[in-house]
Protein backbone atom coordinates (compact mmCIF):
# COMPACT_ATOMS: atom_id res chain seq x y z
CA UNK A 1 0.00 0.00 0.00
CA UNK A 2 1.70 3.21 -1.17
CA UNK A 3 1.25 6.56 0.54
CA UNK A 4 -2.22 8.01 0.29
CA UNK A 5 -2.91 11.72 -0.34
CA UNK A 6 -4.78 11.89 2.97
CA UNK A 7 -2.45 13.01 5.76
CA UNK A 8 -3.26 13.30 9.43
CA UNK A 9 -1.90 14.46 12.77
CA UNK A 10 -3.05 11.50 14.83
CA UNK A 11 0.43 10.92 16.25
CA UNK A 12 0.54 14.47 17.64
CA UNK A 13 -3.01 14.21 18.96
CA UNK A 14 -2.18 10.94 20.72
CA UNK A 15 0.79 12.60 22.36
CA UNK A 16 -1.39 15.50 23.50
CA UNK A 17 -3.98 13.12 24.95
CA UNK A 18 -1.90 11.74 27.83
CA UNK A 19 0.53 10.03 25.42
CA UNK A 20 -2.12 7.58 24.31
CA UNK A 21 -0.58 4.46 22.76
CA UNK A 22 -1.50 3.12 19.32
CA UNK A 23 -3.04 0.09 21.02
CA UNK A 24 -5.23 2.27 23.27
CA UNK A 25 -6.49 4.25 20.26
CA UNK A 26 -7.01 1.01 18.32
CA UNK A 27 -9.11 -0.45 21.15
CA UNK A 28 -11.22 2.72 21.31
CA UNK A 29 -11.99 2.84 17.58
CA UNK A 30 -12.32 -0.93 17.04
CA UNK A 31 -9.35 -1.68 14.76
CA UNK A 32 -5.97 -3.39 15.20
CA UNK A 33 -2.83 -1.55 16.31
CA UNK A 34 -1.29 -2.26 12.89
CA UNK A 35 -4.15 -0.39 11.23
CA UNK A 36 -3.60 2.66 13.46
CA UNK A 37 0.08 2.55 12.51
CA UNK A 38 -0.80 2.33 8.79
CA UNK A 39 -3.23 5.28 9.11
CA UNK A 40 -0.63 7.40 10.94
CA UNK A 41 1.98 6.63 8.31
CA UNK A 42 -0.53 7.60 5.56
CA UNK A 43 -0.27 4.10 4.09
CA UNK A 44 -3.94 3.41 4.55
CA UNK A 45 -6.98 5.70 4.29
CA UNK A 46 -9.56 4.72 6.89
CA UNK A 47 -13.25 4.41 6.09
CA UNK A 48 -15.48 7.36 6.96
CA UNK A 49 -16.81 5.43 9.94
CA UNK A 50 -13.34 4.87 11.43
CA UNK A 51 -12.38 8.49 10.65
CA UNK A 52 -15.44 9.69 12.58
CA UNK A 53 -14.59 7.36 15.46
CA UNK A 54 -11.07 8.84 15.60
CA UNK A 55 -12.54 12.34 15.56
CA UNK A 56 -14.87 11.38 18.41
CA UNK A 57 -11.96 10.05 20.51
CA UNK A 58 -10.09 13.35 20.19
CA UNK A 59 -13.31 15.41 20.30
CA UNK A 60 -12.33 17.33 17.16
CA UNK A 61 -13.94 17.86 13.73
CA UNK A 62 -12.63 15.63 10.91
CA UNK A 63 -10.85 18.48 9.10
CA UNK A 64 -8.71 19.15 12.16
CA UNK A 65 -7.35 15.60 11.97
CA UNK A 66 -7.26 14.68 8.28
CA UNK A 67 -5.90 16.81 5.41
CA UNK A 68 -6.06 16.14 1.69
CA UNK A 69 -2.64 16.70 0.09
CA UNK A 70 -2.76 15.37 -3.48
CA UNK A 71 0.80 16.49 -4.33
CA UNK A 72 2.33 15.84 -0.91
Amino acid sequence: MSKTPIRNNIRTLRFLHDEMTQQELADKIGVTRQTVHAIEAAKYSPSLEVAFRIAAVFDLPLEDIFHYEPDG
Binding site: A26, D27, G30, V31, T32, Q34, T35, A38, P46, V50
Partner: peptide, 10 residues
Protein backbone atom coordinates in the same frame (compact mmCIF):
# COMPACT_ATOMS: atom_id res chain seq x y z
CA UNK B 1 -11.42 -11.55 23.13
CA UNK B 2 -10.46 -8.09 24.32
CA UNK B 3 -8.65 -7.06 21.15
CA UNK B 4 -10.01 -6.67 17.64
CA UNK B 5 -9.43 -9.85 15.61
CA UNK B 6 -10.09 -8.44 12.15
CA UNK B 7 -10.83 -4.95 10.85
CA UNK B 8 -11.52 -3.13 7.58
CA UNK B 9 -7.85 -3.09 6.52
CA UNK B 10 -7.63 -6.88 6.96
Amino acid sequence: KRRVEKDERD
